[in-house]
Design a protein around this nucleic acid. Sequence first.
DNA 1: TGACATTTGTTCGTATATCGCACACGATGA
DNA 2: TCATCGTGTGCGATATACGAACAAATGTCA
Lengths: 251, 251
Amino acid sequence: MRETDFVSGFARGLRVVEAFGEAQPRLSIADAAKITGLDRATVRRSLLTLSQLGYADYDGKFFTLTPKILRLGHAYLSATPLPIIVQPYLDQLAEKAGQSASASVLDGTEIVYVARASQRRVMSINLMPGSRLPAYCASMGRVLLAALPEAEARDILARSELKANTPLTRTDPEELLAELRRVRDEGYAIIDQELELGLCSIAVPVANDRGQVLAAVNIGASAAHVPAREMAERFLPLLRETQAALRLVLR
Amino acid sequence: MRETDFVSGFARGLRVVEAFGEAQPRLSIADAAKITGLDRATVRRSLLTLSQLGYADYDGKFFTLTPKILRLGHAYLSATPLPIIVQPYLDQLAEKAGQSASASVLDGTEIVYVARASQRRVMSINLMPGSRLPAYCASMGRVLLAALPEAEARDILARSELKANTPLTRTDPEELLAELRRVRDEGYAIIDQELELGLCSIAVPVANDRGQVLAAVNIGASAAHVPAREMAERFLPLLRETQAALRLVLR
DNA sequence: TGACATTTGTTCGTATATCGCACACGATGA
DNA sequence: TCATCGTGTGCGATATACGAACAAATGTCA
């Protein structure tokens, strides 16, 4: 790949889009420049481009993204068979379990939700396709990390900001790696309020017919209703069932 | 806005991303060039840029989008208060109604799902945030079009490809405009198997405290379980309740 | 099979567009 | 009033797009 095989204007524009987020729904030119570290003039050109294409609104002072920006993610969601195939199985799983079920894949140090069947809300944060959580402290994250060669998992943990979201969060890399080995052996991961107090979840990997792990599926429940020690007993059979069904239809 | 306030490299890159879709999950350079109408050399540079940034994978022949691309849509979903505020109300609505509830906004001739609480699957197609449906034949689309000045609704209908998805689909622009006037008067829209046989839905507009229509909320049900003539009776009170609650919290 | 046509990916040179910087200007507030 | 912050603009240096040409792969037909 040569130096000139890279369109930096495009890359800069994508950085500007990603500058928008929960904390920054509305950005002025200077805001976006500060967040992206790009020159104000450059950011301004990118934002005006977004606005002219209908991906952003501009009131003369602040820019906000429009729903048209979802077309970009939609291209992935509809182009990738995974979410479409998984969704009906999730719906069934959520109904049988009486709890929310989700599917996610790994992207760097984070897991990305690609499908979700919500039975009832148990988390304070709102999860939907495209939502992200740190892998090290999420049940699906543990399962996905366990599916990687250990060196790679170690590398991802090293790049992660291992912070204790609750007193129960495990943050020691060696302890996490030991847990990953356990997950690899047993084939499932349970999180007991490591992400948020009151929330438990159990996840299994989802592989295709060649045994490649493509995603993870989990069930989340309120710790008050389902203590962590009961998670496996109550939900693992259902998850195994879903896992087996998906193995046959994924390629 | 001056000529130079536009980054055409960025705009070209976005066109390339949108070239991916359900029918085209994997694109070669030449494919993408054909779809976008851009020069092969230019498309190649954009695709290699996407690949280098981790937004796409490249096997030497075909490009596919990666989940990282969802960050772009996620920027909107988490940056925009609407989905986050609406989701808990949708969950509640879906539970009370025992049917799926969704929220969407208008983008051109299409509605875009921004949040969804799925109770059970009634449609053959899979809906999730970011999914799109033509506005003219969806209940939320009717409601959103009805909220526009008539000239604008007429223009959108003119730009829409009015095709009959089922024998019940209404495709005559004048008939649709008359229906929009009815929807505007009555404050809700019912779709009886116009999008897909066996599927009924009812939608109401969601406005903020200043009366601006920001989105639409609907309930979908199987026509076998809930005939169209019973939709209003069974679900309109629940939808009105949700509508009133949202009016108070949206601004 | 071999020769030829077509398609696809890649490279190159140059005209053109874009970047980052510096500066001007207006708004806001101390 | 002055300092500060944010926006818009002109300019030289640099990066990019385009079209064309080339190489390699693929398809086609006798």
